[in-house]
């Protein structure tokens, strides 16, 4: 059993978390070439070693960034996502 650390709740069992994808894979904005869409939709970095990933804590619904080593599986404590990246202000 892995223990991941939610920025709000603290250390919790891995079963309380859900993987949300690679961090930094932002949706292309505006008129972009097909290759940019392909990169966004289909291609991943898959680094060997430290990987920054989006995770969701299912019990408190916190969405955060976690750095996880893909070789050793060691996970750093989760970091809150800065509010300016989730609130685009276009509502």
């Amino acid at each position: 059993m892995h223990i991941y650390t939610c920025p709000f709740c603290g250390p919790r069992p891995e079963t309380e978390f859900h993987f949300g994808g690679e961090a930094g894979n932002d949706r292309p904005d505006g008129d972009v070439p097909a290759q940019a869409w392909a990169d966004y939709l289909h291609y991943r970095q898959n680094p060997k070693g430290a990987a920054r990933e989006i995770w969701i804590h299912l019990t408190c619904h916190e969405v955060f960034v976690m750095t996880r080593d893909t070789v050793t599986m060691a996970a750093q404590p989760g970091e809150p996502i800065p509010s300016d990246t989730t609130d685009r202000g276009d509502a």
Partner: peptide
């Protein structure tokens, strides 16, 4: 599998 001796601000769990 959570640690019962470690406080957590949230009482929600699986």
């Amino acid at each position: 599998a959570l640690d019962p001796y470690r406080p957590s601000p949230s009482a929600a769990l699986l």
